[in-house]
Measured scan of single mutants.
Amino acid sequence: MTEYKLVVVGAGGVGKSALTIQLIQNHFVDEYDPTIEDSYRKQVVIDGETCLLDILDTAGQEEYSAMRDQYMRTGEGFLCVFAINNTKSFEDIHHYREQIKRVKDSEDVPMVLVGNKCDLPSRTVDTKQAQDLARSYGIPFIETSAKTRQGVDDAFYTLVREIRKHKEKMSKDGKKKKKKSKTKCVIM
């Protein structure tokens, strides 16, 4: 069974824990209790493949930012979460993405942009803004509501699919490099 290491990042209060708990335990946590770091595991079937999701729910508070490099190193894919009623959390996505790329030393890291709290009427981040940002990053965008469960499975499952595509691409690139290195030079 394939294991996928997913990391949920975003500013404090955007609903990272609520999304994760909704996926794992099928219930909505409405009281806000700032996370330092929590880890969850769940076995699911995605596109006919049974897999184990190892999900790291991270601290959004700035005082825990020193811990970010460590979990970013171990993560295979990242859910970059903002709240649709919090423009600052949307603007912060850029910083999370840049930090992930720096730590992973790669421009090509599996990510999904997630606009959470889409059940709320007080939207300050337009869907088109988020779609445009995701398009500019070359990553999928999904709106979710941890409260109603809308888009929750889709967000995590899409990230797994992005990781699969990335692994497939990397193995193809690896095979191309191996083929090239088999060419021999004969000096007579």
Rank of each mutant, 00 (worst) to 15 (best):
R68H: 04
R73P: 09
V112N: 00
A66Q: 11
L113V: 06
I100A: 03
M111S: 01
K104A: 11
G115H: 06
F78H: 02
V114Q: 02
A83G: 14
N116T: 15
E63A: 03
R68P: 03
R102C: 07
T124R: 11
C80L: 13
D105Y: 06
E76C: 15
F82V: 14
P110K: 01
P121Q: 13
K117G: 15
G115T: 08
V109P: 04
V103T: 08
N86C: 05
F82D: 02
L113Q: 00
L120W: 10
V81P: 02
S106M: 13
E63H: 01
F78P: 00
E98S: 05
F78V: 04
R97M: 15
Y71D: 12
S65M: 08
M67L: 13
H94R: 14
G77L: 10
K101R: 12
C80H: 05
D119S: 05
G77S: 04
M67W: 12
A83H: 07
K117C: 15
Y96L: 15
N86V: 03
G77Q: 00
G115R: 04
A83F: 00
D126E: 10
P121Y: 09
C118L: 09
L120F: 10
C118R: 06
Q99I: 12
S65K: 08
A83N: 15
L113W: 10
K88T: 13
G115V: 12
D105T: 05
D126K: 07
V81W: 00
K117L: 15
F78Y: 10
V112T: 02
R68D: 03
D105S: 07
M111V: 06
G75W: 07
V114G: 01
S106P: 05
R102Y: 05
G115M: 14
R68T: 04
P110E: 01
V125P: 10
C80Y: 08
R97S: 09
G75K: 02
G77H: 00
H95C: 05
R97N: 05
V125M: 12
S106H: 08
R73M: 09
P110Y: 01
N86M: 03
D119L: 03
N86Y: 02
S106R: 09
Y64C: 03
R68K: 07
I100F: 06
A66S: 13
V81D: 00
E76K: 05
N116R: 01
L79A: 04
R102S: 11
I84E: 15
K117Q: 13
I84P: 15
G77D: 00
N86H: 05
M67T: 06
E107Q: 11
I84R: 13
C80V: 13
T74M: 07
G75R: 04
S65I: 06
A66F: 15
E98T: 04
T124S: 12
F90R: 10
L120V: 12
M111L: 07
R68V: 03
A66K: 07
C80W: 03
L120R: 07
K104M: 12
A83P: 11
S122P: 10
I84Y: 15
P121T: 13
V109G: 02
C118D: 11
E98K: 04
L79S: 01
F90Y: 11
N86P: 02
Q99R: 07
L113T: 03
V125L: 11
V114H: 00
F82N: 02
Y71W: 07
L79F: 04
Q70S: 13
G75N: 07
R123W: 08
V81M: 11
F82I: 09
F78I: 06
I100W: 08
N86I: 03
K104E: 06
S106G: 13
K101C: 14
K117F: 15
I84K: 13
F82Q: 03
C80A: 05
C118W: 08
A66T: 10
E76D: 15
E98R: 05
F90S: 04
